[in-house]
Design a protein around this nucleic acid. Structure first.
Length: 254
DNA sequence: ATGGCTACGATCCGTAGA
């Protein structure tokens, strides 16, 4: 089973690249973020023609998440229960014996800002939600754009980023609180090359300079992580004309 | 020098992303 996550930064713009990538990579499951489109404008038929059914929570202009699957998507659920939020950032579904939660965690804008406070509150709500999900679903995957680079080795220039949003101590503590539930960062289950990132700034030739952050992740419960055989970043779509600023992250399970 | 792209929805600039 191949599970991917990709922040596509507009499903409308990236649809051709997504369809091509699905044909090449053949993932069984894909978590998408930043659709920037309402559900009515989600290209459900094009993706069905590509062999994928979809569960979608869309929003005009901002946010928006979806799960694509070659198999039936059961018990879809949108949002974090008990956490009132206009922003469409979470969708979950069951595929076979795996529960998948697709997340687009808030950016946070700047440390100390109102949006930063929202990010930390949102993370606390996510933690509580996932704690419950783990009791109900031993095989749980949480995949998406977490907007946190967990460690300095996930940052191209830790000195320049020190204390900034995406790497600040409270954000990293919020990330570690997810790991403390028993979730594992599948990327770190394996020996990895240095300087692997999943996002690069559009400006300043960020991708060419590999000036990036590793902020897109696939987490797995202990029971699921036991079966994880690989976890990698696929940089190939980032090299295309008019790319998303994020690359897909792909985890494989036996 | 704190900018530099990109996408969107409103126009021909403002908001947001990270």
């Amino acid at each position: 089973m191949k599970l991917a996550t990709w922040n596509v930064n507009s499903i409308k713009v990236r649809l051709p690249q997504l369809v091509d990538w699905l044909a090449q990579a053949r993932p069984d499951l894909v978590c998408l973020q930043e659709l920037k489109a309402e559900e009515a404008k989600f290209p459900r038929a094009d993706l069905a023609a590509a062999g994928y059914q979809s569960a979608v929570s869309g929003q005009k202009t901002y946010n928006g998440v979806a799960i694509l699957s070659t198999r039936a998507l059961l018990d879809p659920m949108v949002g974090i229960p008990g956490f009132a939020d206009e922003q469409k950032r979470v969708i979950a579904a069951t595929i076979g014996d795996v529960r998948v939660v697709c997340v687009y965690c808030p950016n946070g804008q700047a440390v100390g800002s109102e949006k930063y406070g929202y990010k930390l509150r949102w993370y606390a709500a996510l933690r509580d939600y996932l704690a419950g999900e783990l009791t109900r679903h031993p095989r749980l995957a949480v995949a998406g754009d977490f907007n946190v680079a967990p460690e300095d080795r996930d940052v191209h220039d830790p000195k320049a980023w020190e204390g900034q949003v995406h790497v600040s101590d409270p954000e990293r503590a919020a990330w570690r609180a997810l790991l403390a539930l028993g979730l594992q960062d599948t990327f770190r289950l394996f020996e990895q090359p240095e300087k692997i990132y999943s996002w690069w700034d559009y400006r300043m030739m960020g991708f060419r300079r590999n000036a990036g952050l590793r902020i897109d992740h696939v987490l797995a419960s202990a029971e699921l992580a036991k079966h994880c055989t690989a976890s990698t970043v696929d940089k190939s779509p980032r090299k295309l004309e008019r790319p998303s600023d994020h690359a897909p992250v792909v985890a494989e399970f036996s």
